[in-house]
Amino acid sequence: MDRAELVELLSPEGLRLLDSLPPYEAGADVVRTVSALRKAGHSPALVNAVLYQSRLRAKATAKFGDFASRMLFTEAGLEQATRLRVAALHAGRFVEAKLARVADVGCGIGGDAMAMAAMELTVTAIDIDEVTATVASFNLAPFPTASVLCADAAGVDPAEYDALWFDPARRTAGHGNTSRLTRAEDYSPHLDDVYALAERMPVGVKLGPGHDREQIPETAEAQWVSVDGKLVEMGLWFGALARPGIRRAALLLTRDGVAELTAPADSEDVPVGELGEYLYEPDGAIIRARLIGDLARSMDALMLSEGLAYLTSATLTETPFATAFRVVEVLPADEKKLRIALAERRIGTLEIKKRGVDVDPATLRTRLKLKGPESGTLVLTRAAGHKVALLVERV
């Protein structure tokens, strides 16, 4: 979306037209919709802008729920936007630390700033891009304690705020088909500048979950967050925003609630043991936080193989931090013998999970020539360093 399209969209006619559209549905007859809107007298630019927003609102429902139907987006902004449920936890940190004036630097479409304003923090949302800042202004309009600045992060005066929240741009410039930046030194603002500020005042930083752990400052609390099993971010917290004694945390948000495992440092792995009746796959947040050892000790479980994120035990322990599987059978790891074994069991539908082996599940599934009415889950991994094929079922 460029500036001209945004001007069309923000006109009274544009907003009325956008809100009058039925919910976007993939596969709908877009040509017919465009034709009907043009016949009604709307300009091509306006029609393009409202249909673009309608599609983004539908996509944004996964992050913003019902709020998405009253928000505006850019494609790049939505891609990097914090889920509202996670943003509320971010905002809660500032509330608990009694830090009332917050600058949201690199605010994007304003997701985190919305959560902060909803908790009655005085938040200044700042973005260098004019279109993005305008979209954030629209989304934050209902909140009296929120304001928006179109400015460079370098121009922010930290003395005007109690704390800073940074969501560095981790994608190439633009509003549409941007690509992810692979090098942290290309982020904007630069992380060295952010960390320098964190030595002087409370700072929170949102980064990708795969961010290089070697670049995490020793003074930061690093918290990895997963939502319904999907790893979504790593947050770094400094000063009053960091919890005493915690340097590693794995936070899981599920439909059943919230669970968190914390530690003062990376945990030491437990020894490798023999394959038991149960196999456990830790949540991605546990893996990235390197808390597998602490999880294993809490479950009286052992590593299946050194350096691989699978645990095993003879007994079942319920935990929100790992998916449990019962080991039904150990099958031959050789592909030809494995194909025969699966055919004998009449398995025609197969979920393939792998870790520590060089295999493409989609290609292997084709080569296995599966036929039959049964379904199963196959885990290809290593046990005590040796390749194994495990037929399992979810507990």
Rank of each mutant, 00 (worst) to 15 (best):
residue 378 L to E: 13
residue 93 R to D: 07
residue 267 S to N: 03
residue 322 A to H: 07
residue 171 R to I: 12
residue 205 V to C: 09
residue 250 A to G: 03
residue 310 Y to V: 09
residue 386 H to W: 02
residue 246 I to R: 00
residue 93 R to K: 15
residue 23 P to D: 04
residue 89 L to G: 02
residue 289 A to W: 00
residue 53 Q to A: 09
residue 118 A to I: 11
residue 162 D to Q: 12
residue 293 G to T: 05
residue 196 A to V: 06
residue 38 R to N: 14
residue 317 T to G: 02
residue 234 M to V: 14
residue 308 L to I: 15
residue 250 A to V: 12
residue 76 A to Q: 03
residue 103 A to S: 08
residue 139 N to T: 04
residue 293 G to Y: 13
residue 130 E to N: 10
residue 86 V to F: 14
residue 320 P to F: 08
residue 75 E to Q: 12
residue 134 T to D: 04
residue 166 F to M: 09
residue 317 T to M: 11
residue 7 V to D: 15
residue 34 V to I: 15
residue 52 Y to W: 09
residue 323 T to K: 13
residue 329 E to S: 10
residue 164 L to V: 05
residue 372 G to T: 09
residue 222 A to T: 11
residue 47 V to A: 03
residue 45 A to Q: 14
residue 353 K to V: 12
residue 183 R to F: 10
residue 201 M to E: 06
residue 93 R to P: 02
residue 33 T to G: 08
residue 177 N to C: 01
residue 380 L to A: 02
residue 293 G to D: 08
residue 44 P to A: 00
residue 272 V to M: 03
residue 110 G to R: 03
residue 94 F to I: 08
residue 66 D to K: 05
residue 311 L to E: 02
residue 149 L to N: 01
residue 284 G to I: 08
residue 316 L to M: 10
residue 140 L to A: 06
residue 122 T to L: 10
residue 101 R to S: 08
residue 68 A to C: 07
residue 284 G to F: 07
residue 25 E to I: 11
residue 26 A to H: 12
residue 97 A to V: 01
residue 44 P to Q: 01
residue 136 A to Y: 04
residue 139 N to D: 07
residue 287 I to D: 06
residue 200 R to G: 05
residue 98 K to I: 02
residue 127 D to R: 02
residue 175 H to E: 04
residue 199 E to M: 10
